[in-house]
């Protein structure tokens, strides 16, 4: 890892603000889960904020970003309203996806955040598809695809890297190596543990960044995006980090020791970056507290917004199964057995 100078003050503060928001948001989401406000799975990104914020900061607004089921942070970093992200966790109509996706499936079309996806490895082909669109339309938008260390064992990993290299698609594949796929550690799930090398055989060169360091993540991702965009050469970036919480909510964490967690927590990306900003005179302690307070207030407001948002109407159950048009006016839903034959939603 190179020693990086700090970026301009405004940018540095922006990153700290964004990382702080993600941290406080995730903590609050965990609490809301415990209160029964959030259902299903909840994969928190606590510890992974630098990887998210650094990578997203390297993108242009028109670039495509796609991630996994652990992607509240990506949505926030791309600028999605925290209230709408929280409302999605609550399964409310004002959620980013109107309560259809939940924690694992965030999506914000306007911000080109092209989704969180619940299938491990499922998003790599989609990312290559975005790259194909950019290529086909002659635009210089690039795609950043984040996925976990565990996903590098899926067939889609090799297939997508091969195709992206073969067709020279502007895609940066970023493996977030947080040391585990659920409870299986890297060395127990991958023969090649130097993950940045896993693309070499497919014609995809590797780079590595310190995923606990927002500046390094930003710098490496930026260069990878430049290579993808300008040289039409997909790149595999390995961001090395650590998740501080369990895989999802119910996780006894028997697969790792407290010492290990403690050792990594000394490198907490939020703390180390904040400390550095203070040490280098960019930030006062008061300002630091103010940023934290503001994040907490934003998250308070997000919870209030989610709480106030209505539950989806039962009548919306069939909305958006299809794009309706003259030819698909509705559909016969075999599960409605009234005397009347139901044809789904009719076009208005």
């Amino acid at each position: 890892m190179a020693d990086h100078r700090l970026p301009e003050n405004e940018i540095a503060l922006d990153w700290l603000t964004s990382m702080t928001l993600i941290r406080r948001f995730e903590e609050r989401a965990g609490e809301q889960y415990a209160r029964g406000k959030v259902g299903g799975f909840l994969h928190l990104a606590i510890g992974e904020e630098a990887t998210i914020v650094g990578a997203v900061a390297a993108l242009r607004p028109t670039d495509y970003m796609i991630a996994t089921y652990r992607s509240h942070g990506q949505a926030l970093a791309r600028g999605s309203e925290p209230g709408r992200v929280m409302a999605e966790l609550f399964g409310r109509v004002d959620g980013l996806c109107r309560g259809r996706g939940g924690s694992m499936h965030m999506f914000d079309r306007e911000r080109r955040f092209m989704g969180g996806f619940g299938i491990v490895g499922g998003n790599l082909p989609l990312a290559a598809g975005f790259g194909l669109t950019s290529d086909y339309l002659g635009s210089d938008d690039a795609t950043l695809c984040q996925f976990g260390d565990g996903a590098t064992n899926q067939g889609t990993f090799g297939e997508s890297l091969n195709l992206a290299a073969l067709w020279r698609l502007p895609v940066v594949f970023m493996v977030t190596n947080n040391q585990f796929g659920m409870g299986t550690s890297l060395e127990r799930h991958s023969a090649q543990t130097d993950l940045q090398r896993k693309g070499e055989g497919f014609g995809v060169p590797g780079m590595e960044c310190d995923g606990m360091d927002v500046i390094d993540t930003w710098a490496v991702t930026k260069e990878a995006l430049r290579i993808a965009r300008e040289e039409r050469q997909p790149v595999l970036v390995e961001a090395i980090n650590y998740r501080f919480r369990g895989h999802s909510i119910a996780d006894p964490e028997d697969y790792r020791t407290e010492e290990e967690v403690l050792a990594w927590s000394k490198r907490d990306p939020l703390v180390t970056f904040g400390d550095r900003l203070v040490a280098e005179g960019v930030l006062s302690d008061e300002q630091r507290q103010a940023i934290d307070l503001e994040a907490t207030e934003t998250v308070d407001a997000a919870v209030a917004f989610a709480e106030a948002s209505p539950e989806p109407q039962p009548s919306s159950l069939y909305d958006d199964v299809y794009v309706l048009s003259d030819q698909v006016r509705g559909w016969y839903s075999a599960d409605h057995r009234g005397a009347e034959l139901r044809k789904g939603e009719e076009l208005s």
Partner: peptide, 26 residues
């Protein structure tokens, strides 16, 4: 060749690339 694309034997990924490109306008 840009519009009639021969692919490798990677069914899931071929369809997935199609899906990704369809999501973004093709």
């Amino acid at each position: 060749e840009g519009r009639i694309r021969d692919t490798p034997i990677s069914e899931n990924t071929i369809v997935g690339i199609g899906v990704g490109s369809a999501m973004t306008g093709l």
